[in-house]
Measured scan of single mutants.
Amino acid sequence: KFGRVHERAEGPAKILAIGTATPFHWVDQSSYPDYYFRVTNSDHLVDLKEKFRRICNRTMISKRHMFLTEEILQKNPNLCSHNEPSFDVRQDILVSEIPKLGKEAVLMAIDEWAQPKSKITHLVFCTRSGVDMPGADYQLIKLLGLSPSVQRVMMYQQGCFAGGTMLRLAKDLAENNKGARVLVVCAESSAIGFRGPSEDHPDNLIAQALFGDGAAALIIGSDPKMGLERPIFEIVTTAQTFVPNGDCHLALHLREMGLTFHCTKDVPPTIAKNVESCLIKAFEPLGISDWNSIFWILHPGGNAIVDQVESTLGLEPNKLQATRNILREYGNLSSACVLFILDEIRKKSGREGLKTSGDGLDLGVLLSFGPGLTIETVVLR
């Protein structure tokens, strides 16, 4: 008597548009150690500064975009301390800036989509910054002038794996609601975790050397309108798992001094060791076991992770080039990073006149991972 209210779509979910945005301000990685130790009044920690310089040199990052300028840091000195309470200051900045950054990426996506924004039916927003109620999803709806009846899902504090999570959720929403057009937004800022150095917490140096700011937005829907919408990728399958006891290797915690970062040297080999089982589960039903026969979007948690995944799986050097390019130009953008790589690989395919948006290949994989050593596996066509 009370059956399904919403009719299912006929076809699989497809990515119809991609937009990205970054803050205008950026830092050069080669000179960042001098800048970082100067603005945090830590130049007296000579040995720690040299250690940080070595870490920065190993990241293979060229530059990173950041909202925090020297002027902002001078006005808010607690942000430059390692342990002073600064959460309220971070909140005041990020509750406002995260939706604005997301808006810039959304406008780029809508411009490519070339359809009225009134056709957006759902919003899925993800960030690890600016936790608030009502959330960044609500603020973004107002900034864009979208209908208050847009169906919203707000996900805070997920971390680097969440780019894949957003695709998984959007696929379910698009395929189970005929005519749905799902706006996916990942907006991230390193301002939540920026803090001064400490000899007692070397993990913090890794975070300060890796993370950048950026937002990515996608429009996802099934059954694209012929002649009006141009699909870029099809989302074939999605899956999530985590490595048992992985939280002892990688975890982040909200504290009075901001978001703290805990990471062990076992993260790269542990991820590399567990990736292939995810690939087998995803691609065995499709008859694929040659990992060089697919295109790759791999989250660059750090250069060591990229190198070890490449080595463990025997990947050809060009397979992870898009990942390395984004890491070099932006650093680790947390949940937004794989979506930047997705954009990079389709643009490169277009520039080179390849037959598909995925490096000329039919199928590919998007792998994202993060806290708890959670792994998201997304098969794309």
Score class of each variant (00 low, 15 high):
residue 81 S to Y: 02
residue 294 I to E: 10
residue 287 G to S: 02
residue 373 L to G: 14
residue 85 P to S: 11
residue 259 L to K: 15
residue 312 T to C: 10
residue 101 L to K: 02
residue 80 C to N: 00
residue 334 S to V: 03
residue 82 H to W: 15
residue 37 F to P: 00
residue 30 S to L: 07
residue 311 S to V: 05
residue 312 T to R: 09
residue 265 K to S: 05
residue 23 P to G: 05
residue 50 E to W: 13
residue 306 V to T: 08
residue 255 R to E: 15
residue 111 D to R: 12
residue 269 P to D: 15
residue 46 V to M: 10
residue 299 H to E: 13
residue 375 I to A: 14
residue 268 P to T: 12
residue 320 L to P: 00
residue 232 I to K: 05
residue 338 V to F: 00
residue 337 C to T: 13
residue 374 T to Y: 14
residue 307 D to W: 03
residue 282 A to R: 15
residue 19 G to H: 05
residue 296 W to R: 10
residue 244 P to E: 06
residue 61 I to V: 07
residue 280 I to F: 04
residue 380 L to Q: 15
residue 54 R to L: 14
residue 330 Y to F: 06
residue 319 K to A: 12
residue 267 V to I: 11
residue 136 A to S: 10
residue 53 R to E: 05
residue 102 G to S: 12
residue 244 P to A: 11
residue 313 L to P: 00
residue 361 L to H: 14
residue 367 L to W: 12
residue 320 L to W: 02
residue 353 G to E: 11
residue 267 V to F: 09
residue 268 P to E: 12
residue 98 I to C: 08
residue 29 Q to C: 09
residue 272 A to V: 09
residue 252 L to S: 14
residue 1 K to M: 00
residue 42 S to P: 02
residue 137 D to R: 06
residue 27 V to G: 03
residue 75 K to D: 06
residue 10 E to V: 11
residue 368 S to L: 01
residue 277 S to Q: 13
residue 288 I to D: 00
residue 332 N to Y: 10
residue 118 S to G: 13
residue 80 C to F: 07
residue 50 E to V: 12
residue 71 E to G: 07
residue 357 S to N: 06
residue 89 V to P: 12
residue 315 L to K: 10
residue 77 P to A: 07
residue 280 I to K: 07
residue 336 A to L: 04
residue 111 D to K: 13
residue 272 A to R: 10
residue 303 N to H: 07
residue 36 Y to C: 12
residue 19 G to T: 05
residue 72 I to W: 07
residue 362 D to V: 01
residue 52 F to W: 07
residue 380 L to R: 14
residue 236 V to L: 13
residue 148 P to Q: 07
residue 354 L to W: 05
residue 21 A to T: 06
residue 263 C to L: 13
residue 369 F to M: 15
residue 112 E to R: 06
residue 298 L to D: 10
residue 344 E to A: 07
residue 237 T to N: 11
residue 241 T to S: 12
residue 328 R to L: 07
residue 115 Q to W: 03
residue 21 A to W: 04
residue 294 I to T: 09
residue 8 R to P: 11
residue 132 D to L: 10
residue 54 R to V: 04
residue 326 I to A: 15
residue 234 E to Y: 01
residue 286 L to F: 11
residue 235 I to M: 04
residue 76 N to T: 11
residue 32 Y to H: 11
residue 345 I to Q: 09
residue 97 E to P: 06
residue 259 L to H: 14
residue 40 T to E: 03
residue 339 L to F: 13
residue 261 F to D: 15
residue 234 E to G: 08
residue 363 L to W: 08
residue 278 C to T: 00
residue 117 K to M: 08
residue 262 H to V: 13
residue 371 P to R: 13
residue 138 Y to M: 12
residue 23 P to A: 08
residue 339 L to Y: 15
residue 32 Y to M: 13
residue 20 T to S: 05
residue 356 T to D: 06
residue 47 D to S: 04
residue 334 S to C: 13
residue 50 E to G: 03
residue 127 T to G: 07
residue 145 G to R: 02
residue 352 E to G: 07
residue 76 N to R: 11
residue 329 E to P: 11
residue 14 K to S: 12
residue 380 L to V: 03
residue 52 F to V: 03
residue 252 L to V: 08
residue 135 G to D: 09
residue 10 E to M: 09
residue 139 Q to A: 11
residue 23 P to F: 00
residue 239 A to L: 04
residue 10 E to L: 09
residue 54 R to A: 13
residue 83 N to I: 12
residue 111 D to C: 01
residue 301 G to Q: 06
residue 26 W to Y: 03
residue 305 I to R: 06
residue 339 L to H: 15
residue 232 I to Q: 11
residue 292 N to A: 09
residue 310 E to C: 07
residue 304 A to Q: 10
residue 76 N to V: 07
residue 67 F to I: 13
residue 337 C to R: 13
residue 276 E to I: 02
residue 333 L to Y: 01
residue 72 I to G: 09
residue 246 G to W: 12
residue 228 L to D: 02
residue 57 N to A: 12
residue 365 V to G: 15
residue 294 I to G: 09
residue 358 G to Y: 09
residue 285 P to I: 07
residue 14 K to F: 15
residue 92 D to V: 02
residue 306 V to S: 11
residue 349 S to D: 02
residue 68 L to W: 03
residue 258 G to V: 05
residue 368 S to V: 01
residue 8 R to F: 00
residue 293 S to R: 08
residue 10 E to Q: 03
residue 287 G to E: 07
residue 241 T to H: 14
residue 313 L to W: 06
residue 368 S to P: 08
residue 97 E to L: 02
residue 356 T to V: 04
residue 100 K to Q: 05
residue 297 I to P: 11
residue 62 S to C: 03
residue 377 T to G: 06
residue 94 L to F: 11
residue 234 E to K: 04
residue 256 E to G: 09
residue 244 P to R: 10
residue 18 I to A: 01
residue 58 R to T: 02
residue 83 N to Q: 11
residue 232 I to R: 01
residue 353 G to V: 05
residue 231 P to A: 09
residue 111 D to T: 09
residue 102 G to N: 00
residue 86 S to W: 06
residue 28 D to G: 03
residue 32 Y to F: 13
residue 12 P to I: 06
residue 240 Q to F: 02
residue 357 S to I: 01
residue 324 R to A: 03
residue 374 T to M: 13
residue 264 T to K: 02
residue 236 V to E: 10
residue 355 K to T: 08
residue 112 E to V: 03
residue 48 L to I: 08
residue 121 T to A: 00
residue 323 T to Q: 01
residue 341 I to S: 07
residue 92 D to S: 13
residue 285 P to G: 12
residue 282 A to C: 09
residue 54 R to P: 09
residue 25 H to P: 14
residue 14 K to E: 04
residue 259 L to E: 15
residue 86 S to M: 13
residue 116 P to C: 07
residue 250 L to T: 15
residue 242 F to P: 15
residue 37 F to C: 15
residue 88 D to P: 08
residue 123 L to A: 03
residue 250 L to P: 00
residue 245 N to M: 15
residue 346 R to V: 09
residue 100 K to A: 10
residue 58 R to I: 07
residue 80 C to Y: 12
residue 246 G to T: 11
residue 142 K to M: 09
residue 261 F to A: 14
residue 26 W to E: 12
residue 235 I to P: 09
residue 243 V to Y: 07
residue 123 L to F: 05
residue 117 K to R: 10
residue 21 A to I: 01
residue 5 V to D: 09
residue 120 I to S: 07
residue 366 L to V: 10
residue 285 P to V: 05
residue 365 V to D: 14
residue 8 R to L: 12
residue 149 S to P: 07
residue 320 L to C: 06
residue 350 G to H: 00
residue 323 T to G: 14
residue 257 M to C: 09
residue 322 A to Y: 08
residue 6 H to T: 11
residue 78 N to D: 11
residue 8 R to G: 04
residue 332 N to R: 10
residue 109 A to P: 04
residue 113 W to S: 02
residue 361 L to Y: 02
residue 299 H to G: 14
residue 44 H to L: 08
residue 62 S to N: 08
residue 255 R to I: 12
residue 29 Q to H: 07
residue 288 I to T: 09
residue 25 H to N: 06
residue 147 S to A: 03
residue 135 G to S: 06
residue 103 K to G: 09
residue 343 D to K: 04
residue 250 L to W: 10
residue 77 P to G: 02
residue 266 D to C: 10
residue 137 D to L: 06
residue 365 V to P: 15
residue 35 Y to G: 04
residue 260 T to P: 14
residue 35 Y to P: 04
residue 331 G to S: 08
residue 279 L to D: 09
residue 122 H to E: 03
residue 292 N to H: 02
residue 367 L to Y: 14
residue 380 L to M: 11
residue 20 T to Q: 11
residue 285 P to K: 03
residue 334 S to D: 11
residue 290 D to P: 01
residue 335 S to R: 02
residue 258 G to L: 13
residue 129 S to W: 12
residue 280 I to R: 11
residue 141 I to H: 04
residue 381 R to H: 06
residue 96 S to W: 09
residue 27 V to K: 02
residue 134 P to H: 03
residue 70 E to R: 07
residue 236 V to G: 07
residue 257 M to W: 04
residue 57 N to L: 00
residue 249 H to W: 09
residue 252 L to N: 15
residue 339 L to K: 10
residue 32 Y to K: 11
residue 365 V to M: 13
residue 255 R to W: 07
residue 127 T to M: 03
residue 241 T to N: 14
residue 107 L to T: 08
residue 340 F to Q: 15
residue 89 V to S: 12
residue 241 T to P: 10
residue 95 V to I: 04
residue 244 P to M: 01
residue 308 Q to V: 11
residue 370 G to M: 14
residue 234 E to V: 12
residue 251 A to V: 00
residue 17 A to C: 02
residue 373 L to E: 15
residue 358 G to Q: 06
residue 373 L to C: 11
residue 283 F to W: 04
residue 100 K to N: 12
residue 248 C to T: 09
residue 232 I to Y: 01
residue 237 T to A: 05
residue 33 P to A: 12
residue 238 T to N: 03
residue 68 L to S: 08
residue 75 K to S: 15
residue 24 F to P: 15
residue 268 P to F: 14
residue 291 W to L: 12
residue 37 F to D: 01
residue 16 L to Q: 00
residue 60 M to A: 12
residue 352 E to W: 06
residue 336 A to M: 00
residue 313 L to Y: 03
residue 346 R to G: 01
residue 337 C to D: 05
residue 327 L to D: 04
residue 245 N to R: 10
residue 60 M to V: 09
residue 380 L to F: 05
residue 149 S to T: 06
residue 16 L to P: 01
residue 336 A to R: 11
residue 379 V to Y: 05
residue 98 I to S: 07
residue 304 A to G: 13
residue 57 N to K: 12
residue 142 K to R: 12
residue 278 C to K: 02
residue 229 E to A: 04
residue 302 G to D: 11
residue 374 T to Q: 11
residue 81 S to N: 09
residue 65 H to V: 06
residue 12 P to R: 08
residue 116 P to W: 04
residue 379 V to T: 12
